[in-house]
Design a protein around this nucleic acid. Structure first.
Ligand SMILES: [Mn+2]
Ligand SMILES: [Mn+2]
Ligand SMILES: [Mn+2]
Ligand SMILES: [Mn+2]
Lengths: 220, 220
DNA sequence: ATAAAATTTTAGACTACCCTAAAAAACTAT
DNA sequence: ATAGTTTTTTAGGGTAGTCTAAAATTTTAT
């Protein structure tokens, strides 16, 4: 029904619109798609024609219910393939995203639902991002940022909000991966950097920039 | 390097050129690609430009070494994904081909080589077709047709030369799947139909048309 | 409130892949 | 050998998705 390019636009609009489902600008889409604003306008007209987005010119866009459903299907496929590559093929979490960008466009529902079962119905991908259900709803996880954790609190790493492979490799080296336990030992007021104890080992230092991109939940 | 469409042409030229690597005609390609001869000519010019085929106008085409290498890569990916779907996801052998037609275009070598290892380096796909190696050579299996088997000889089913899902479903129902043992009990001269004993059970009847599309090897 | 700046859309054009219709070349049959 | 038939190529054109340049609209700043 939707071409590969259309699917990428829908997925991107979903991600850029954020939790509040705000309107997405033409320029924001142009920047992320590595295309020019004029090309984005053309595509927005086509998506509006297909009733996948709400579009009034000069006003930005939002997904329709149908458009959001299709975006979530693409995101579901992307994240399930990432789980497959890490869990079954032994890829590292910093390697799988570019390949999932291709696999996410394989359309078969039968394939993806069997893959889901084969992976034992995972609820999140290797980066801690929730996997939309087959019926098209996005599980909302209410994690908070490691940088907002109070002194001495102990938390569990659940995921990341930055997916650059250099960042992911840094976290692997530091042992800051989903499942790790972190206790905040010290917070430096001037630059908000932290000393943290990972899995009970010797304290290490992380910048606010790093702590801001690590998602955690309170120790259960 | 090559687009999805170009990959499909290369694969098709490989298949149509047969074991003897004969020249493939424009009209044969047009028929199989569901396009018109004029469109095929356009594509042949492009592939020749990229040195993937030998092309002289009005003369038909053959793959270059480079073109054959790329065709074999696509076929390798296709067949490995078919093994994955049948062995790991529980698909039936008559269901996987259309999905593999999409998966075969996912380009990552790393992905396909890890998949190969995950599947324990299979040598043939669910239909008995050999899987090209990572280095780009096609294992040649010298199976013969069940219809050429002599009376009373016992053979093992190795694969099929017809992939229509209706044919595959018929074979599944009959128990004529790769690995089955077949003994030829009777051959009817007038229409070359056969009575065969499958896995030692009661004899069943198959037409020459069916026997012609079943590949077997002598009992070891 | 109005002018300047930024954003967005329109206009016109390009490539990849496909089409129909017509021309060219290759086969086939007498 | 020549005429008819079939196959293949060329000519001209269409859609999807992209571009640059120019026009329209909105936002920002005085
Ligand atoms: Mn990803
Ligand atoms: Mn994509
Ligand atoms: Mn197949
Ligand atoms: Mn294909």
């Amino acid at each position: 029904m939707a071409s590969l390019t259309e699917e990428n636009y829908l997925k991107l609009i979903y991600h850029l619109s954020g939790a509040l489902r705000e309107e997405v600008s033409t320029s924001a889409l142009a920047e992320q798609t590595q295309t020019k604003a004029a090309s984005v306008t053309d595509m927005l007209k086509k998506l509006a024609e297909k009733n996948l987005i709400h579009y009034k010119r000069y006003q930005g866009v939002r997904l329709t219910e149908e458009g959001e459903y299709m975006a979530l299907k693409v995101i579901r496929r992307h994240r399930l393939w990432e789980v497959f590559m890490v869990e079954k093929l032994g890829f590292r979490w910093d390697e799988v995203h570019p390949i999932a960008e291709e696999l996410e466009h394989i359309a078969s529902d039968e394939l993806i639902n069997r893959l889901d079962a084969f992976l034992n119905f995972p609820v999140s991908d290797p980066h801690g991002d929730p996997i939309p259900t087959a019926s098209g709803s996005m599980p909302e996880a209410d994690y908070h940022k490691l940088c907002d954790t109070s002194l001495n609190d102990q938390v569990t790493v659940m995921g990341v909000s930055e997916h650059a492979s250099s960042f992911l490799q840094f976290l692997s080296k530091a042992g800051l991966v989903p499942g790790s336990t972190v206790q905040v030992v010290e917070i430096n007021a001037f630059d908000r950097s932290m000393q943290i104890r990972i899995n009970g080992l010797e304290p290490s230092f992380i910048s606010h920039e790093v702590a801001r991109n690590i998602l955690v939940s309170p120790e259960s």
